[in-house]
């Protein structure tokens, strides 16, 4: 019996090791190459052959990634904040009120999530052009709002529904207005849900590629990280050291963010998406 459990543990340990290798290898390889002065001249080994920070220096100065990071941060901040607020209001409406067309609206929210964004590039391009917001970050934020809203509404709906109505009623009995109740009862209780949804809005804003490419066009000073990296790769296709350094720089903020919200995220997913 003991023997069996030992071999089982060994198998499990091997599986964990394999899994860790698969999940972490690309990130490791990216970071390792980014510190390697020899990364562009072939003859790779698993460890950097000649440690250097020059790649980073190059990317942040000549490569312009300081600007790209700032642009992405701005876009992400506004996308996350605005979509969080708008989605929460909408989620309260569908979770707490009964009204005509409620089911219809829910179905619509569910359905528009499935619309392929690629299909909307052409009309949204024309639309953003008509608003004269091409080449600007504002145009991008507006578009990203539309993409992150349906999922955020859907997820937050679950959280709001999970808050016991009794708590709300208790607040009313204490003489609170609806707005007061919203702020002091509902909001704190759905905060974990807001964190989970903000992760998704953040990913949209930070990673999105096709719209950034189309809507920002030639305005390199407004490029987000994804499109900045594409441009950088266009010039330095064979300089893998700097390309990997740039990749690392734009990945690190997301990784930190993800690992920090890990626990909240899984709860949020179950509460929101699964309860669907």
């Amino acid at each position: 019996m003991r023997h069996r459990s030992l071999s089982r543990r060994l198998v499990k340990a091997a599986l964990v090791a394999l899994l860790l290798a698969f999940t972490l290898f690309p990130a490791y390889w990216m970071i390792s190459s980014s510190f390697d002065a020899q990364a562009s001249s072939g003859g790779q080994s698993l460890l950097p052959q000649e440690f250097t920070l020059a790649n980073y220096q190059y990317v942040l100065t000549e490569g312009g990634f300081g600007t790209f990071l700032r642009n992405s941060a701005v876009v992400a901040f506004f996308t996350v904040t605005i979509s969080g607020i708008v989605a929460l209001l909408a989620a309260v409406a569908v979770a707490r009120f009964r009204f005509k067309f409620r089911t219809g609206i829910l179905i619509m929210v569910l359905t528009v999530q499935m619309v392929p964004l690629e299909a909307l590039v052409i009309p949204l391009f024309v639309q953003v052009r008509d608003l004269q917001l091409l080449n600007s970050l504002v145009g991008l934020v507006i578009v990203y709002l539309a993409f992150s809203l349906p999922f955020a509404i859907w997820m937050l709906r679950g959280f709001v529904a999970a808050v016991p109505v009794e708590l709300e009623e208790a607040a009313y009995i204490d003489g609170a207005s609806w707005g007061r109740m919203f702020r002091s009862v509902l909001l704190p209780l759905v905060a974990p849900g807001l964190v989970a949804t903000s992760v998704f809005s953040f990913i949209v804003a930070w990673n999105e590629f096709i719209f950034a490419m189309t809507l920002l066009g030639g305005a390199a000073e407004n490029y987000t990280v994804a499109i900045g990296l594409k441009q950088f790769f266009g010039v330095h296709a064979n300089d893998w050291g700097p390309v990997m350094a740039a990749s690392t720089i734009i990945t690190i903020p997301v990784m930190v963010f993800f690992v920090l919200v890990q626990g909240k995220l899984s709860n949020g997913l179950v509460a929101g998406a699964v309860k669907g």
Binding site: T23, F209, V225, M255, F257
Partner: peptide, 8 residues
């Protein structure tokens, strides 16, 4: 970490 890596 794997999830966090942007698509690009």
């Amino acid at each position: 970490v794997a999830w966090a890596m942007p698509a690009v």
